[in-house]
Design a protein around this nucleic acid. Structure first.
Lengths: 212, 212
DNA sequence: CCTACCGATCGGTAGG
DNA sequence: CCTACCGATCGGTAGG
Protein backbone atom coordinates (compact mmCIF):
# COMPACT_ATOMS: atom_id res chain seq x y z
CA UNK A 1 0.00 0.00 0.00
CA UNK A 2 1.43 3.37 -0.96
CA UNK A 3 2.08 6.08 1.61
CA UNK A 4 -0.83 8.31 0.64
CA UNK A 5 -3.30 5.47 1.26
CA UNK A 6 -1.63 4.65 4.57
CA UNK A 7 -2.10 8.26 5.66
CA UNK A 8 -5.75 8.21 4.58
CA UNK A 9 -6.37 4.95 6.44
CA UNK A 10 -4.75 6.19 9.64
CA UNK A 11 -6.56 9.53 9.42
CA UNK A 12 -9.91 7.82 8.84
CA UNK A 13 -9.43 5.60 11.88
CA UNK A 14 -8.31 8.41 14.17
CA UNK A 15 -10.89 10.97 12.99
CA UNK A 16 -13.63 8.39 13.55
CA UNK A 17 -12.25 7.31 16.93
CA UNK A 18 -11.18 10.64 18.45
CA UNK A 19 -12.80 13.26 16.25
CA UNK A 20 -11.15 15.82 14.00
CA UNK A 21 -10.18 18.18 16.83
CA UNK A 22 -9.12 15.25 18.99
CA UNK A 23 -6.66 14.05 16.35
CA UNK A 24 -3.26 15.62 15.67
CA UNK A 25 -1.11 15.39 12.57
CA UNK A 26 1.59 14.06 14.90
CA UNK A 27 -0.36 10.94 15.94
CA UNK A 28 -1.32 10.23 12.33
CA UNK A 29 2.30 10.56 11.22
CA UNK A 30 3.38 8.28 14.07
CA UNK A 31 0.94 5.57 13.00
CA UNK A 32 2.20 5.72 9.41
CA UNK A 33 5.84 5.87 10.52
CA UNK A 34 6.81 9.18 8.94
CA UNK A 35 7.45 12.73 10.19
CA UNK A 36 4.78 15.38 10.39
CA UNK A 37 6.20 17.59 7.58
CA UNK A 38 6.24 14.52 5.33
CA UNK A 39 2.53 14.12 5.86
CA UNK A 40 2.04 17.77 4.94
CA UNK A 41 3.85 17.08 1.67
CA UNK A 42 1.08 14.65 0.65
CA UNK A 43 -1.78 16.75 2.03
CA UNK A 44 -1.26 20.52 2.17
CA UNK A 45 -3.21 20.99 5.41
CA UNK A 46 -5.11 19.13 8.12
CA UNK A 47 -8.36 20.29 6.59
CA UNK A 48 -7.36 19.05 3.14
CA UNK A 49 -6.73 15.65 4.73
CA UNK A 50 -10.20 15.71 6.27
CA UNK A 51 -11.77 16.51 2.91
CA UNK A 52 -9.81 13.69 1.25
CA UNK A 53 -10.96 11.21 3.91
CA UNK A 54 -14.61 12.08 3.35
CA UNK A 55 -14.24 12.15 -0.44
CA UNK A 56 -12.86 8.62 -0.40
CA UNK A 57 -15.81 7.38 1.67
CA UNK A 58 -18.27 9.19 -0.58
CA UNK A 59 -16.71 7.49 -3.61
CA UNK A 60 -17.17 4.08 -1.99
CA UNK A 61 -20.78 4.92 -1.24
CA UNK A 62 -21.57 6.27 -4.70
CA UNK A 63 -20.17 3.11 -6.20
CA UNK A 64 -22.11 0.73 -3.95
CA UNK A 65 -25.51 2.41 -4.02
CA UNK A 66 -26.57 2.24 -7.68
CA UNK A 67 -25.45 -1.38 -7.97
CA UNK A 68 -27.69 -2.56 -5.16
CA UNK A 69 -30.66 -0.36 -6.05
CA UNK A 70 -30.81 -1.90 -9.52
CA UNK A 71 -29.96 -5.41 -8.38
CA UNK A 72 -33.33 -6.30 -6.94
CA UNK A 73 -36.60 -5.36 -8.56
CA UNK A 74 -39.33 -7.28 -6.78
CA UNK A 75 -41.34 -5.79 -3.90
CA UNK A 76 -40.09 -6.80 -0.51
CA UNK A 77 -36.84 -8.16 -1.91
CA UNK A 78 -35.65 -4.74 -3.02
CA UNK A 79 -36.20 -3.26 0.41
CA UNK A 80 -34.28 -6.08 2.05
CA UNK A 81 -31.44 -5.61 -0.41
CA UNK A 82 -31.13 -1.90 0.26
CA UNK A 83 -31.28 -2.16 4.04
CA UNK A 84 -29.02 -5.21 4.15
CA UNK A 85 -26.44 -3.57 1.92
CA UNK A 86 -26.55 -0.40 4.00
CA UNK A 87 -26.00 -2.40 7.16
CA UNK A 88 -23.24 -4.41 5.48
CA UNK A 89 -21.55 -1.25 4.18
CA UNK A 90 -21.34 0.27 7.64
CA UNK A 91 -20.68 -2.84 9.73
CA UNK A 92 -17.83 -3.83 7.40
CA UNK A 93 -16.08 -0.79 8.86
CA UNK A 94 -17.99 0.87 11.73
CA UNK A 95 -15.61 3.84 11.54
CA UNK A 96 -17.52 4.89 8.44
CA UNK A 97 -20.67 5.35 10.51
CA UNK A 98 -18.82 7.12 13.33
CA UNK A 99 -17.17 9.45 10.83
CA UNK A 100 -20.53 10.44 9.35
CA UNK A 101 -22.15 11.07 12.72
CA UNK A 102 -19.20 13.19 13.82
CA UNK A 103 -19.28 15.23 10.63
CA UNK A 104 -23.03 15.76 10.97
CA UNK A 105 -22.49 17.10 14.50
CA UNK A 106 -19.37 19.14 13.70
CA UNK A 107 -20.39 20.71 10.38
CA UNK A 108 -24.18 20.43 10.01
CA UNK A 109 -24.60 23.11 7.33
CA UNK A 110 -21.86 21.73 5.09
CA UNK A 111 -23.12 18.16 5.40
CA UNK A 112 -26.63 19.38 4.70
CA UNK A 113 -25.80 20.66 1.22
CA UNK A 114 -23.80 17.51 0.53
CA UNK A 115 -26.77 15.38 1.50
CA UNK A 116 -29.11 17.32 -0.73
CA UNK A 117 -26.91 16.78 -3.77
CA UNK A 118 -25.68 13.23 -3.17
CA UNK A 119 -28.26 11.44 -1.02
CA UNK A 120 -31.55 13.15 -1.88
CA UNK A 121 -31.82 11.57 -5.37
CA UNK A 122 -31.58 8.07 -3.89
CA UNK A 123 -34.04 8.90 -1.15
CA UNK A 124 -36.50 10.03 -3.81
CA UNK A 125 -36.17 6.73 -5.64
CA UNK A 126 -36.98 4.74 -2.52
CA UNK A 127 -39.84 7.17 -1.77
CA UNK A 128 -41.42 6.52 -5.15
CA UNK A 129 -41.14 2.82 -4.49
CA UNK A 130 -42.92 3.28 -1.16
CA UNK A 131 -45.68 5.38 -2.73
CA UNK A 132 -46.28 2.69 -5.36
CA UNK A 133 -46.52 0.15 -2.58
CA UNK A 134 -49.12 2.32 -0.86
CA UNK A 135 -51.22 2.49 -4.04
CA UNK A 136 -50.84 -1.25 -4.53
CA UNK A 137 -51.88 -1.76 -0.91
CA UNK A 138 -48.77 -3.61 0.28
CA UNK A 139 -47.43 -0.75 2.35
CA UNK A 140 -49.16 1.00 5.26
CA UNK A 141 -51.14 4.02 4.21
CA UNK A 142 -49.97 6.24 7.05
CA UNK A 143 -46.27 5.89 6.28
CA UNK A 144 -44.71 9.29 5.56
CA UNK A 145 -42.28 8.21 2.81
CA UNK A 146 -39.63 10.95 3.11
CA UNK A 147 -39.65 10.95 6.88
CA UNK A 148 -39.62 7.14 6.98
CA UNK A 149 -36.56 6.82 4.74
CA UNK A 150 -34.70 9.46 6.72
CA UNK A 151 -35.50 7.65 9.97
CA UNK A 152 -34.28 4.31 8.63
CA UNK A 153 -31.01 5.80 7.40
CA UNK A 154 -30.67 7.54 10.75
CA UNK A 155 -31.36 4.28 12.57
CA UNK A 156 -28.83 2.22 10.61
CA UNK A 157 -25.99 4.75 10.84
CA UNK A 158 -26.54 5.61 14.49
CA UNK A 159 -26.97 1.96 15.40
CA UNK A 160 -23.62 0.96 13.93
CA UNK A 161 -21.84 4.09 15.16
CA UNK A 162 -22.90 3.63 18.77
CA UNK A 163 -22.96 -0.15 18.87
CA UNK A 164 -19.61 -0.56 20.61
CA UNK A 165 -21.04 1.39 23.53
CA UNK A 166 -24.79 0.83 23.50
CA UNK A 167 -24.72 -2.71 22.18
CA UNK A 168 -23.57 -4.03 25.53
CA UNK A 169 -27.11 -3.60 26.82
CA UNK A 170 -28.05 -6.46 24.52
CA UNK A 171 -25.96 -9.49 25.46
CA UNK A 172 -25.05 -11.87 22.66
CA UNK A 173 -27.49 -14.74 22.23
CA UNK A 174 -24.54 -17.07 21.71
CA UNK A 175 -20.89 -16.99 20.71
CA UNK A 176 -19.90 -15.53 17.36
CA UNK A 177 -21.49 -12.41 15.95
CA UNK A 178 -22.21 -10.20 18.94
CA UNK A 179 -24.51 -7.80 17.13
CA UNK A 180 -26.78 -10.17 15.24
CA UNK A 181 -29.68 -9.59 17.68
CA UNK A 182 -29.14 -5.87 17.42
CA UNK A 183 -29.13 -5.83 13.62
CA UNK A 184 -31.94 -8.36 13.26
CA UNK A 185 -34.21 -6.21 15.40
CA UNK A 186 -33.27 -3.10 13.43
CA UNK A 187 -34.32 -4.74 10.17
CA UNK A 188 -37.46 -6.11 11.79
CA UNK A 189 -38.51 -2.67 13.08
CA UNK A 190 -37.90 -1.11 9.67
CA UNK A 191 -39.94 -3.78 7.86
CA UNK A 192 -42.76 -4.22 10.36
CA UNK A 193 -43.50 -0.51 10.29
CA UNK A 194 -43.63 -0.49 6.50
CA UNK A 195 -45.19 -3.67 5.06
CA UNK A 196 -48.76 -4.66 5.83
CA UNK A 197 -48.15 -8.35 5.20
CA UNK A 198 -46.49 -9.68 8.36
CA UNK A 199 -44.40 -12.53 7.02
CA UNK A 200 -43.60 -15.60 9.08
CA UNK A 201 -41.11 -14.73 11.82
CA UNK A 202 -37.48 -15.08 10.78
CA UNK A 203 -35.62 -18.23 11.92
CA UNK A 204 -33.61 -16.21 14.45
CA UNK A 205 -36.76 -14.89 16.10
CA UNK A 206 -38.32 -18.34 16.19
CA UNK A 207 -35.20 -19.79 17.84
CA UNK A 208 -35.23 -16.99 20.38
CA UNK A 209 -38.84 -17.65 21.32
CA UNK A 210 -38.14 -21.37 21.63
CA UNK A 211 -35.35 -20.74 24.13
CA UNK A 212 -37.57 -18.81 26.50
CA UNK B 1 -28.45 33.07 37.60
CA UNK B 2 -25.24 32.58 39.51
CA UNK B 3 -21.88 32.37 37.79
CA UNK B 4 -21.40 28.65 38.25
CA UNK B 5 -24.66 27.93 36.40
CA UNK B 6 -23.72 30.37 33.65
CA UNK B 7 -20.47 28.49 33.15
CA UNK B 8 -22.29 25.16 33.08
CA UNK B 9 -24.80 26.47 30.54
CA UNK B 10 -22.14 27.90 28.25
CA UNK B 11 -20.03 24.74 28.53
CA UNK B 12 -23.02 22.52 27.76
CA UNK B 13 -23.85 24.52 24.66
CA UNK B 14 -20.29 24.61 23.36
CA UNK B 15 -19.44 20.98 24.17
CA UNK B 16 -22.60 19.91 22.33
CA UNK B 17 -21.98 22.22 19.39
CA UNK B 18 -18.22 21.89 18.90
CA UNK B 19 -17.28 18.86 20.96
CA UNK B 20 -15.06 18.67 24.04
CA UNK B 21 -11.78 18.95 22.12
CA UNK B 22 -13.24 21.64 19.87
CA UNK B 23 -14.09 23.83 22.85
CA UNK B 24 -11.56 25.92 24.81
CA UNK B 25 -11.82 27.32 28.31
CA UNK B 26 -11.20 30.70 26.69
CA UNK B 27 -14.37 30.68 24.55
CA UNK B 28 -16.45 29.49 27.50
CA UNK B 29 -15.04 32.28 29.68
CA UNK B 30 -15.73 34.81 26.92
CA UNK B 31 -19.39 33.74 26.71
CA UNK B 32 -19.80 34.09 30.47
CA UNK B 33 -17.88 37.38 30.55
CA UNK B 34 -15.10 36.39 32.93
CA UNK B 35 -11.39 35.54 32.57
CA UNK B 36 -10.12 32.02 32.09
CA UNK B 37 -8.47 31.72 35.54
CA UNK B 38 -11.77 32.76 37.11
CA UNK B 39 -13.47 29.82 35.42
CA UNK B 40 -10.78 27.53 36.82
CA UNK B 41 -11.62 28.81 40.29
CA UNK B 42 -15.15 27.37 39.96
CA UNK B 43 -14.06 24.17 38.21
CA UNK B 44 -10.55 22.89 38.95
CA UNK B 45 -9.96 21.58 35.42
CA UNK B 46 -11.53 21.29 31.97
CA UNK B 47 -12.26 17.65 32.65
CA UNK B 48 -13.97 18.48 35.95
CA UNK B 49 -16.19 20.88 34.01
CA UNK B 50 -17.07 18.13 31.55
CA UNK B 51 -18.02 15.78 34.37
CA UNK B 52 -20.17 18.48 35.98
CA UNK B 53 -21.98 19.13 32.70
CA UNK B 54 -22.85 15.46 32.30
CA UNK B 55 -23.75 15.05 35.95
CA UNK B 56 -26.25 17.89 35.69
CA UNK B 57 -27.90 16.30 32.65
CA UNK B 58 -27.98 12.91 34.35
CA UNK B 59 -29.74 14.49 37.34
CA UNK B 60 -32.41 15.97 35.05
CA UNK B 61 -32.89 12.60 33.43
CA UNK B 62 -33.07 10.65 36.70
CA UNK B 63 -35.68 13.07 37.94
CA UNK B 64 -37.85 12.92 34.82
CA UNK B 65 -37.79 9.18 34.17
CA UNK B 66 -39.46 7.65 37.26
CA UNK B 67 -42.21 10.27 37.21
CA UNK B 68 -43.29 9.41 33.69
CA UNK B 69 -42.85 5.64 34.05
CA UNK B 70 -45.27 5.58 36.98
CA UNK B 71 -47.64 8.17 35.54
CA UNK B 72 -49.32 5.97 32.98
CA UNK B 73 -50.30 2.39 33.69
CA UNK B 74 -52.56 1.23 30.88
CA UNK B 75 -51.27 -0.65 27.80
CA UNK B 76 -50.63 1.56 24.83
CA UNK B 77 -50.88 4.73 26.89
CA UNK B 78 -47.77 3.95 28.89
CA UNK B 79 -45.72 3.41 25.77
CA UNK B 80 -46.89 6.71 24.31
CA UNK B 81 -46.08 8.48 27.55
CA UNK B 82 -42.54 7.12 27.69
CA UNK B 83 -41.69 7.82 24.06
CA UNK B 84 -43.38 11.24 24.07
CA UNK B 85 -41.59 12.27 27.24
CA UNK B 86 -38.27 11.08 25.82
CA UNK B 87 -38.83 13.08 22.66
CA UNK B 88 -39.95 16.10 24.70
CA UNK B 89 -36.94 15.83 26.99
CA UNK B 90 -34.49 15.94 24.10
CA UNK B 91 -36.28 18.36 21.77
CA UNK B 92 -36.69 20.85 24.62
CA UNK B 93 -32.93 21.21 24.35
CA UNK B 94 -31.42 19.31 21.38
CA UNK B 95 -27.95 19.95 22.80
CA UNK B 96 -28.72 17.24 25.33
CA UNK B 97 -28.98 14.68 22.53
CA UNK B 98 -25.86 15.97 20.77
CA UNK B 99 -23.93 15.85 24.03
CA UNK B 100 -24.87 12.22 24.60
CA UNK B 101 -23.98 11.14 21.08
CA UNK B 102 -20.62 12.91 21.32
CA UNK B 103 -19.84 11.30 24.66
CA UNK B 104 -20.79 7.87 23.32
CA UNK B 105 -18.36 8.37 20.42
CA UNK B 106 -15.57 9.95 22.48
CA UNK B 107 -15.62 7.74 25.57
CA UNK B 108 -17.49 4.52 24.74
CA UNK B 109 -16.14 2.42 27.60
CA UNK B 110 -16.90 5.02 30.27
CA UNK B 111 -20.41 5.63 28.94
CA UNK B 112 -20.97 1.91 28.78
CA UNK B 113 -20.54 1.39 32.52
CA UNK B 114 -22.69 4.46 33.18
CA UNK B 115 -25.45 3.06 30.99
CA UNK B 116 -25.36 -0.29 32.74
CA UNK B 117 -25.85 1.31 36.14
CA UNK B 118 -28.26 4.15 35.30
CA UNK B 119 -30.21 3.14 32.18
CA UNK B 120 -30.30 -0.65 32.33
CA UNK B 121 -32.83 -0.80 35.21
CA UNK B 122 -35.32 1.32 33.27
CA UNK B 123 -34.77 -0.69 30.11
CA UNK B 124 -35.57 -3.86 32.08
CA UNK B 125 -38.85 -2.36 33.29
CA UNK B 126 -39.96 -1.56 29.75
CA UNK B 127 -38.79 -5.02 28.65
CA UNK B 128 -41.00 -6.71 31.22
CA UNK B 129 -43.90 -4.62 30.00
CA UNK B 130 -43.21 -5.77 26.45
CA UNK B 131 -42.97 -9.42 27.48
CA UNK B 132 -46.32 -9.18 29.26
CA UNK B 133 -47.81 -7.68 26.12
CA UNK B 134 -46.48 -10.62 24.14
CA UNK B 135 -48.11 -13.11 26.53
CA UNK B 136 -51.33 -11.12 26.41
CA UNK B 137 -51.13 -11.09 22.60
CA UNK B 138 -51.14 -7.32 22.10
CA UNK B 139 -47.48 -7.13 21.06
CA UNK B 140 -45.81 -8.89 18.15
CA UNK B 141 -44.32 -12.23 19.10
CA UNK B 142 -41.07 -11.73 17.19
CA UNK B 143 -40.11 -8.50 18.96
CA UNK B 144 -36.75 -8.86 20.72
CA UNK B 145 -37.53 -6.78 23.83
CA UNK B 146 -34.01 -5.69 24.85
CA UNK B 147 -32.89 -5.02 21.29
CA UNK B 148 -36.14 -3.20 20.52
CA UNK B 149 -35.84 -0.81 23.47
CA UNK B 150 -32.22 -0.07 22.65
CA UNK B 151 -33.13 0.69 19.05
CA UNK B 152 -35.93 3.04 20.05
CA UNK B 153 -33.68 4.96 22.44
CA UNK B 154 -31.05 5.06 19.74
CA UNK B 155 -33.60 6.32 17.23
CA UNK B 156 -34.94 9.11 19.44
CA UNK B 157 -31.55 10.42 20.54
CA UNK B 158 -29.94 10.22 17.10
CA UNK B 159 -33.00 11.71 15.47
CA UNK B 160 -32.96 14.80 17.65
CA UNK B 161 -29.17 15.12 17.61
CA UNK B 162 -28.91 15.08 13.82
CA UNK B 163 -32.17 16.80 13.03
CA UNK B 164 -30.65 20.22 12.31
CA UNK B 165 -28.68 18.61 9.51
CA UNK B 166 -30.70 15.61 8.32
CA UNK B 167 -34.11 17.10 8.89
CA UNK B 168 -33.78 19.32 5.86
CA UNK B 169 -34.44 16.29 3.69
CA UNK B 170 -37.99 16.39 5.05
CA UNK B 171 -39.50 19.78 4.26
CA UNK B 172 -42.03 21.16 6.70
CA UNK B 173 -45.62 20.30 5.87
CA UNK B 174 -46.61 23.84 6.80
CA UNK B 175 -45.38 26.79 8.81
CA UNK B 176 -44.68 26.36 12.49
CA UNK B 177 -43.08 23.25 13.91
CA UNK B 178 -40.57 22.13 11.30
CA UNK B 179 -39.93 18.72 12.79
CA UNK B 180 -43.46 17.51 13.44
CA UNK B 181 -43.42 15.19 10.41
CA UNK B 182 -40.06 13.88 11.49
CA UNK B 183 -41.15 13.17 15.05
CA UNK B 184 -44.58 11.86 14.08
CA UNK B 185 -43.00 9.28 11.79
CA UNK B 186 -40.50 8.29 14.49
CA UNK B 187 -43.32 7.54 16.93
CA UNK B 188 -45.31 5.76 14.22
CA UNK B 189 -42.35 3.48 13.35
CA UNK B 190 -41.77 2.65 17.01
CA UNK B 191 -45.44 1.80 17.59
CA UNK B 192 -46.22 0.05 14.31
CA UNK B 193 -43.32 -2.35 14.85
CA UNK B 194 -44.49 -3.18 18.38
CA UNK B 195 -48.29 -3.30 18.68
CA UNK B 196 -50.36 -5.79 16.72
CA UNK B 197 -53.49 -3.63 16.80
CA UNK B 198 -53.04 -1.00 14.13
CA UNK B 199 -55.04 1.90 15.49
CA UNK B 200 -56.77 4.40 13.24
CA UNK B 201 -54.18 6.61 11.52
CA UNK B 202 -53.29 9.76 13.42
CA UNK B 203 -54.93 13.04 12.30
CA UNK B 204 -51.63 14.28 10.88
CA UNK B 205 -51.28 11.23 8.65
CA UNK B 206 -54.87 11.51 7.46
CA UNK B 207 -54.38 15.17 6.58
CA UNK B 208 -51.21 14.28 4.68
CA UNK B 209 -52.98 11.63 2.63
CA UNK B 210 -55.84 14.00 1.86
CA UNK B 211 -53.41 16.59 0.48
CA UNK B 212 -51.91 14.18 -2.06
C1' DC C 1 10.87 12.42 2.69
C1' DC C 2 13.88 14.73 6.46
C1' DT C 3 15.78 18.39 10.28
C1' DA C 4 15.03 22.60 12.28
C1' DC C 5 12.09 25.91 13.60
C1' DC C 6 7.97 29.34 14.04
C1' DG C 7 3.91 31.95 16.02
C1' DA C 8 -0.31 30.88 18.19
C1' DT C 9 -2.90 28.79 21.43
C1' DC C 10 -3.79 25.24 24.64
C1' DG C 11 -4.88 23.93 29.86
C1' DG C 12 -3.31 25.35 34.02
C1' DT C 13 -0.58 28.00 38.08
C1' DA C 14 1.21 31.86 41.13
C1' DG C 15 -0.05 35.37 43.68
C1' DG C 16 -2.89 38.74 45.06
C1' DC D 1 -12.54 37.26 40.60
C1' DC D 2 -8.18 39.50 38.36
C1' DT D 3 -3.13 40.11 36.02
C1' DA D 4 0.79 37.90 34.70
C1' DC D 5 2.89 34.05 33.23
C1' DC D 6 4.36 28.97 32.19
C1' DG D 7 5.56 24.59 29.62
C1' DA D 8 3.59 21.84 26.13
C1' DT D 9 1.72 21.16 21.93
C1' DC D 10 -0.76 22.64 18.01
C1' DG D 11 -0.78 23.27 12.56
C1' DG D 12 2.31 24.73 9.39
C1' DT D 13 6.89 26.60 6.90
C1' DA D 14 11.85 26.92 5.28
C1' DG D 15 15.13 24.68 3.14
C1' DG D 16 17.33 20.91 1.60
Amino acid sequence: MDVRDQILAAATRQFAQNGFDGTTLQTISDEVGIRKPSLLYHFPSKDALRVAVHQKMLDHWNEALPRLLHAATSGEGQFDAVVSEMVAFFTRDPDRARLIVREVLDRPTEVSVLIKSHVKPWVDIVCNYIKKGQERGTIYDDVDPEAYVVQVINLVVASVATHACIGELVPAAQSGKVHRRHIDELVRVAKASLFKSVAAPAPAARARRASR
